[in-house]
Simulated assay, not measured.
Amino acid sequence: MSSMSRTYARRSLHSIVAHDLGRRIVTGQLTPGDNLPTEAQLSETLDVSRTALREAIKILSAKGLIESRPKTGTRVKPRHFWNLLDPDVLSWHFPDPDPAFLYGLFETRLIIEPNTAAMAAERRSEEQLETIRKAYIGMEQAEPGTEAVYLTDLEFHQAILDASQNDFMKSLGMLIESALIGSFRMSSAGPKAHVHSLPSHKAVYQAIADRDPDEARSVMRQLLRQTMMQLRDELGMKGTTDWERITL
């Protein structure tokens, strides 16, 4: 199931409006400091009731994207106020995320996932190892160009987070699920990208199976760097300082 369908499986009218306005903000169509059109203008433009619009405004305010003040109206807040771990806010960055956002996501993954893989190698149960193995087999069997490619990739990484036996890690995986799906979809877009990543995924599984935390940490980091370099080249970011540093 895609991040969008997970987030909006049962869309209400106000959630649809929140999605539309949230996407405009996150993608830069509305920038920090910009005032949203008046309630009357938005209601007419979006063809929704003012009640639905007010509920949508409440949603976006709770996510830190906007603020409403008497006399000054509703304004887009600076990016550092946004709750970037919110599933909706994360999903609104895709399918065309800003390179800086994508860099930040991978930088975060490089901090968390290699260490989580090491924890999984030390703590995993046989049942959890079997879940990781089945996810990897699913990746091998996934038909290129289908949703199964990135959904099985997601299952593989989340199974490792679960095997870490750390509830914070597992919760974090659920929080950033929509961003992971988006990044997996991008990194597996090439006709051979998915196939090329399989040996690295298998190496991660094997290290966890062997209960070798150092190897698990190392091969997971190599896997993430390999994916990052591929995305860097696809986005035309080769030579950009941040993106070069993350792949060293």
Rank of each mutant, 00 (worst) to 15 (best):
residue 1 M to Q: 09
residue 2 S to V: 04
residue 2 S to N: 15
residue 3 S to R: 05
residue 4 M to I: 11
residue 6 R to I: 08
residue 6 R to N: 14
residue 7 T to K: 14
residue 7 T to M: 15
residue 8 Y to R: 13
residue 8 Y to W: 14
residue 9 A to L: 15
residue 9 A to C: 13
residue 11 R to Y: 08
residue 12 S to P: 04
residue 14 H to P: 06
residue 16 I to N: 13
residue 16 I to K: 14
residue 18 A to I: 08
residue 18 A to C: 11
residue 20 D to H: 12
residue 22 G to M: 08
residue 24 R to K: 10
residue 27 T to P: 09
residue 30 L to F: 04
residue 31 T to Q: 10
residue 34 D to M: 13
residue 35 N to R: 10
residue 36 L to A: 04
residue 36 L to C: 04
residue 36 L to H: 05
residue 37 P to S: 14
residue 38 T to D: 10
residue 38 T to I: 06
residue 40 A to C: 00
residue 40 A to H: 06
residue 47 D to T: 05
residue 48 V to F: 10
residue 49 S to I: 07
residue 50 R to K: 10
residue 51 T to H: 14
residue 52 A to P: 01
residue 53 L to S: 01
residue 56 A to Q: 05
residue 57 I to N: 00
residue 57 I to T: 03
residue 59 I to C: 11
residue 59 I to Y: 00
residue 61 S to P: 09
residue 66 I to T: 04
residue 66 I to C: 02
residue 68 S to G: 15
residue 71 K to T: 11
residue 73 G to P: 01
residue 73 G to W: 07
residue 76 V to P: 00
residue 78 P to D: 13
residue 79 R to V: 12
residue 79 R to P: 01
residue 81 F to K: 13
residue 86 D to K: 05
residue 86 D to M: 07
residue 89 V to L: 14
residue 92 W to P: 01
residue 93 H to L: 12
residue 95 P to S: 13
residue 95 P to H: 12
residue 97 P to V: 07
residue 99 P to E: 03
residue 99 P to N: 06
residue 101 F to S: 03
residue 105 L to W: 10
residue 105 L to C: 08
residue 110 L to K: 05
residue 112 I to Q: 12
residue 113 E to W: 04
residue 114 P to G: 00
residue 114 P to H: 06
residue 115 N to A: 08
residue 116 T to K: 03
residue 119 M to C: 07
residue 119 M to D: 02
residue 121 A to Q: 06
residue 123 R to E: 02
residue 124 R to K: 03
residue 125 S to I: 02
residue 126 E to D: 15
residue 130 E to W: 06
residue 130 E to S: 11
residue 132 I to Q: 02
residue 137 I to V: 15
residue 140 E to S: 08
residue 141 Q to F: 06
residue 142 A to W: 00
residue 143 E to K: 11
residue 143 E to R: 08
residue 144 P to E: 07
residue 151 L to D: 08
residue 152 T to K: 00
residue 152 T to H: 11
residue 156 F to D: 01
residue 159 A to V: 09
residue 160 I to T: 00
residue 162 D to W: 00
residue 163 A to Y: 07
residue 166 N to Q: 12
residue 170 K to L: 13
residue 170 K to W: 11
residue 172 L to G: 10
residue 172 L to M: 14
residue 176 I to E: 00
residue 178 S to Y: 02
residue 181 I to K: 06
residue 181 I to R: 06
residue 182 G to Q: 05
residue 185 R to L: 10
residue 185 R to G: 09
residue 185 R to M: 13
residue 187 S to C: 12
residue 187 S to N: 10
residue 188 S to E: 01
residue 190 G to D: 09
residue 191 P to Q: 11
residue 192 K to G: 02
residue 192 K to W: 06
residue 192 K to Y: 04
residue 195 V to H: 11
residue 197 S to P: 04
residue 198 L to V: 09
residue 198 L to W: 06
residue 198 L to G: 03
residue 199 P to D: 07
residue 200 S to D: 09
residue 202 K to I: 09
residue 202 K to E: 12
residue 204 V to P: 00
residue 205 Y to D: 01
residue 208 I to T: 05
residue 210 D to Q: 13
residue 214 D to C: 03
residue 215 E to T: 14
residue 216 A to L: 02
residue 216 A to E: 06
residue 219 V to L: 05
residue 221 R to N: 07
residue 221 R to Y: 08
residue 222 Q to F: 06
residue 225 R to A: 13
residue 227 T to F: 01
residue 231 L to T: 03
residue 231 L to R: 01
residue 232 R to F: 04
residue 236 G to Q: 02
residue 237 M to H: 04
residue 238 K to T: 15
residue 239 G to D: 03
residue 241 T to M: 11
residue 242 D to R: 13
